[in-house]
Design a protein around this nucleic acid. Structure first.
Lengths: 219, 219
DNA sequence: CGACTAATTGATTTGCTTCAAATATCGTGG
DNA sequence: CCACGATATTTGAAGCAAATCAATTAGTCG
């Protein structure tokens, strides 16, 4: 998001930021809070989730280093539409909205790139939307895993999701239940597609997983 | 989206636009087309839909007069992520992306408000996303109807969705099947909640429909 | 009036959730 | 270092909401 900026702007950005450590499981902001801050993750992992009236939760996305969050709501003067929770010990940069607005006023570049990230997230969400409604649970889990594996770390067995994630979270991400995810992963482990242990998932056969994500994995 | 602009900018916008009539069922742009144009609906109704690999379709949203579409993808230089199809005979304004970009360069206001609409659509989508995963089909249909009724037209019996919509389309909008929608509407007609005939839906009891949308309609 | 598109309604199946209960893994303090 | 509580995961069985399949009825339009 900041890649289009010049040295000068970057310096100003850095000066206005507050960097702080966030321990695992710490709530960074909550659904309904006034969106008064813009955040960018420096290190670790953060999950963005919504809580339904009935108490069930939906994970919207996981944030990795370099990604911004809370920015759209803040800039629009709206309350945060979701919770942000640190998954592991993390480090983030925080700006008060006013400071961020000020920076945008001085260098419209930043405003454009903020708009651009919002745009690409929008396209992304539309994509996932279609997946959620149209596809079978197994496909959705496969897709989610593939997406998570994208910025995972390679190991001998395959690509490992590089932060701890529970079946529960994977379920909330794909709109299903803990049980179904567990069953599915068990089956995939059996078939050598994945190797998952407690809070850890390794994708061993990207190719076959992809074919499950696309259509039926039967062929 | 254009409300923040001055007279001068509006004139320039108007000059750069091409206005054209679009007959019902006409495809305005298709999924995968290079996003070379920005569109705003002047009159009528347009639906935005995605087609799955397996051929099934998902309606993302309906566009009413005054709303822009195709703009995000176009500005970002990406291919259109969805089809746009006229539901009824319509009139739209079209700009080549370059013209639109040019206009933005001259008056950053436009860029900001484009960003803002993208932002609010993003927040909106997140909302719908949660609904789609967490809620029962009946609730989703209720919500969809309420949203459609929002810019509907009042009749003696209640609020009528002011464009023809099929059970099939409603199903594609809510991620369910034609059959389930038909059954649900039949039940609601029976109960006096709605009055629907072929391609026409009147919401008679907004209040009760809302209570179905929220939680169980049983209380 | 046909021909076509839309909508209804019933019967059946199934993928997924729900509920229940056992087992595994981790951290922690005695 | 081991035992214990807390957290995660697995697995089974039963139930159900919604999809699927099949066949009929109702509107619309040329």
């Amino acid at each position: 998001m900041f890649s289009a900026l010049g040295d000068d702007e970057l310096r100003r950005l850095a000066e206005a930021a507050v960097v702080r450590r966030v321990p695992a499981a710490k709530v960074i902001f909550s659904q309904g809070d006034p969106g008064a801050t813009c955040h960018t993750l420096i290190e670790g992992r953060v999950k963005i989730l919504q809580t339904n009236p009935d108490g069930s939760q939906a994970v919207l996305r996981f944030i990795g280093p370099g990604e911004a969050y809370g920015t759209v709501a803040a800039l629009m003067g709206k309350p945060f539409p979701a919770d942000a929770v640190a998954v592991v010990d993390s480090v983030e940069a925080v700006w008060p909205v006013q400071a961020f607005r000020e920076l945008i006023r001085r260098s419209p570049e930043l405003g454009l790139s903020a708009g651009a990230t919002a745009g690409s997230r929008l396209l992304d969400l539309q994509q996932r939307m279609r997946e959620l409604t149209g596809e079978r649970v197994e496909q959705r889990i496969a897709r989610a895993l593939l997406r998570l594996a994208e910025d995972g770390r390679k190991s001998e067995q395959g690509v490992e999701v590089d932060f701890p994630i529970t079946r529960q979270e994977l379920a909330e991400l794909t709109g299903t239940t803990l049980f179904t995810v567990s069953r599915t992963l068990s089956a995939w482990n059996e078939a050598g597609l994945t190797a998952s242990r407690r809070r850890r998932i390794v994708v061993c056969d990207l190719h076959r997983l992809r074919s499950i994500a696309e259509g039926s994995g039967g062929d």
